[in-house]
């Protein structure tokens, strides 16, 4: 956005082009502002809705097929609570679920369909975005770990947890998310399926080449790797969505740390020539375009969004 607006942009990325060290490598890429409203403040929905529009503009060829929420019969109470606390959904009966996801025929008595939602595949969409930055005249430097104070010009600091030691990001913490990627051609899904879980939102997200991402846990801790407990829960969720997942091949286990402030809300902290954008928590892909736009509006016109921005 900044490069398109005519600014000379250099992007410093700590890892290589594949960005395996980045949290986004392990992200689900869910664009689900309505579902997230269950546990998020209204500002997440506001920014998420704007970001959805921006994603649609940026990726006109990517189908956004909505998302489907289902529950195991025993989690019925959680399902009803979820329906009550979220909006813009349609209730589906068993036939309705089977109509939009034929693979799930006979599996669930009812579901909640959020037609406005979507998802992107982070590992595919990031290279596309990189190409656009370059096409707009921006420069990307990989394997370039920089401190904001060592850079000239206006610095936009999006380092996530790596920015924790700075005075501008007090109380930033890591919230661990674990995922599993499996492969099977026995299940076809056209949209992410969310399964009610008492603690975490668990999704089965279809990806290209018969792959599915199962994620993600949300654990207050900063260790790495995937625990057996989490693996059981994630694989159990997939199996509950469809027993054919029992025969799927496990391709990857992975985990990332989501940068979060105590209120789990994003912040744009402005301090002279440094703008720190951080705390996207589990809404990285959902909120990033909206936060980029707010940053651009500030840089171009000095516009302040009081809900998200803090000026020194």
């Amino acid at each position: 956005m900044l490069a398109k607006a005519g600014h000379a942009v250099t992007l410093h990325e700590r890892s290589d082009q594949a960005m395996r060290d980045a949290t986004s490598h392990w992200a689900g890429g869910m664009l689900a502002p309505w579902c997230e409203a269950e546990v998020s403040e209204p500002v997440v929905s506001r920014l998420g809705l704007r970001a959805l529009d921006l994603w649609r503009e940026e990726l006109p060829d990517t189908p956004f097929n909505g998302s489907l929420v289902v529950a195991h019969a025993r989690d019925r109470a959680d399902f009803e609570r979820f329906a009550k606390m979220t909006s813009s959904h349609t209730r589906l009966d068993a036939a309705g679920v089977a109509e939009i996801e034929p693979s799930l025929e006979g599996r669930f008595r009812d579901g909640l369909f959020y037609p406005g939602e979507g998802h992107v595949e982070p590992r595919r969409v990031l290279p596309q975005l990189h190409a656009r930055i370059t096409a707009a005249g921006g420069i990307i430097k990989y394997n370039s770990e920089q401190q904001p104070k060592d850079l000239d010009g206006l610095v936009i600091d999006c380092r996530g947890l790596a920015a924790r030691d700075d005075a501008s990001t007090p109380k930033l913490r890591g919230v661990k998310g674990e995922i599993i990627i499996v492969e099977t051609d026995e299940v076809q899904l056209s949209r992410p399926v969310r399964l009610m879980h008492p603690r975490w939102p668990l999704y089965v997200i279809p990806r290209a080449d018969n792959r599915f991402m199962l994620g993600a846990t949300s654990i207050e801790g900063e260790d790495t790797g995937v625990s057996v407990r989490s693996a059981l829960e994630l694989l159990g969720a997939a199996y509950a969505v469809h027993p054919a997942f029992a025969e799927a091949r496990i391709l990857e286990f992975g985990s990332g740390l989501r940068p979060a402030f105590p209120d789990n809300l994003p912040r744009i902290a402005i301090d002279k020539n440094t703008i720190a954008v951080n705390g996207l928590y589990r809404h990285g892909f959902l909120l990033a375009p909206a936060l980029a736009e707010l940053t651009l509006n500030y840089v171009q016109r000095g516009e302040i969004d009081n809900e998200v921005m803090q000026c020194k």
Binding site: K171, G174, I219, E220, G221, E222, R229, S230
Partner: peptide, 12 residues
């Protein structure tokens, strides 16, 4: 419940 193996983050 919150952490695998009791390594809950200091921040929390």
């Amino acid at each position: 419940r919150e952490s695998a193996g009791g390594k809950t983050g200091d921040a929390f």
